[in-house]
Write a protein that binds this DNA or RNA. Structure first.
Lengths: 223, 223
DNA sequence: GCGGCCTGCGTACGACGTACGCACCGTCTG
DNA sequence: CAGACGGTGCGTACGTCGTACGCAGGCCGC
């Protein structure tokens, strides 16, 4: 994160002297401020100027620590996910592991609804570590890596979809309107649907495992 | 642009002559132009000024037919969905009906990726007609209306999630980069996951149907 | 001291959504 | 035929946005 330790330290000293109580600008402070604003006022209210006033610094000072607003959005999204990382090692029971992953994501999105918007798939940026976690956790269900990948994507997609359905209302407006309607997915809906999907996975995995040859081999290997 | 009367007059003539067949500004034309731009250049490139130049009209003229940009985004999203409406009546087979709904949504989002962004849940704006369609189509699976609602939301959420996963890349950038990665949901993933979910629904519905009383009634009616 | 850094930030630019108000046109009324 | 009126087009202007650029001032090794 920091190229040099001592330089950062020097900056801290400088800050203490020059701007008295100000904690000094840093990437971490900027990201934290941005998250605070987005949480409190909605992502639409998150502007570079707003962040600058929050930290009472100049607007352009932010750009010394953040390439541009897009990078900042990526950073806060990643930070939101990092608040609730998938634990290592994953639970041995595949079902429990899927429930855990789903719940962690659910919590991230409930705590920071803007994460659904700032990144189209917050947890799965461009690296596959989360997917790998899920695929690994499914080892107890199936040995077919391709099937495990497909299942993982299904679970992940489902979770993301329900979360959108759940927090859709207050995404743009910063206000909180619980707004009960049959369209709004509840936590019960979330869990019921997840169990349904897991049931389907179990059934499907055992089915392909019980008769792997008939179709697959006769048709000349997997598609 | 034009400050004087005669110049305006000249323009009017020009309009009549040059644009002869043009039906003049209309809400439909504006919506269509907006969709064309969003399809071709991405939703980020969609501005009121851009639409105005597309229709070569003044920017503020648009506001005679559209309340504001938000309303326009809502309108194009609804228009995108209306291109592929759920057919009436729904297929008798509940499984086929779910597949159909899922496929129609998938096609909408593939054709117009921005629809995933312009409305957090494009098809389910604020009315329940699509939900009702799904619930009705599930009559063959379960008689429990609450369960049918829950299933509908699960299917809908899943579809939305996979679509995001599928088109996430070209959402913001207007460019098309197929970009194959294990994270990107394919059409095969989409269908496999859907079937898995449907399997789970079938199993779960038959399970609750076989022993409906024990819990529900003993606990004093539905929650 | 002095020339290179790194950091903070004031200014400025272009793009955005849109409030406001004027000019025009067709129609309706007297 | 005149004059009023509602609907439409749109030029101007304002406030906000992201951010390019460049300057000022403190630190470093020489």
């Amino acid at each position: 994160m920091y190229a040099s330790r001592w330089l950062d330290f020097a900056m801290a000293i400088d800050k203490q002297r020059g701007r008295a109580s100000s904690p000094g600008l840093s990437r971490g402070a900027i990201v934290a401020a941005a998250m605070r604003i987005a949480d409190a006022e909605g992502v639409a209210a998150l502007s570079m100027r707003r962040i600058a006033t929050e930290l009472d610094s100049g607007v352009m000072s932010l750009y010394r620590h953040v390439a541009n607003k897009d990078a900042l959005l990526t950073a806060i999204t990643r930070a939101a996910c990092d608040e609730r990382p998938y634990p290592e090692p994953a639970p041995a029971d595949w079902r429990e592991a899927m429930r855990l992953a789903a719940r962690l994501d659910w919590e991230v999105y409930c705590a920071h609804p803007w994460a659904l918007v700032t990144s189209s798939s917050a947890r799965h940026f461009s690296d596959t570590t989360c997917l790998d976690w899920m695929v690994g956790a499914l080892a107890g269900l199936t040995e077919d890596a391709e099937l495990a990948r497909s299942f993982s994507i299904a679970v992940w997609s489902y979770v993301q979809g329900v979360c959108i359905q759940h927090v859709a209302q207050q995404l743009l407006s910063g206000g909180d309107k619980p707004e009960q309607s049959p369209l709004r997915a509840t936590e019960e809906d979330f869990e019921a649907g997840l169990e349904t999907l897991l049931d389907g996975m179990e059934q499907r995995a055992s089915r392909t495992a019980s008769r792997p040859a008939p179709r697959t081999f006769a048709a000349g290997g997997r598609r």
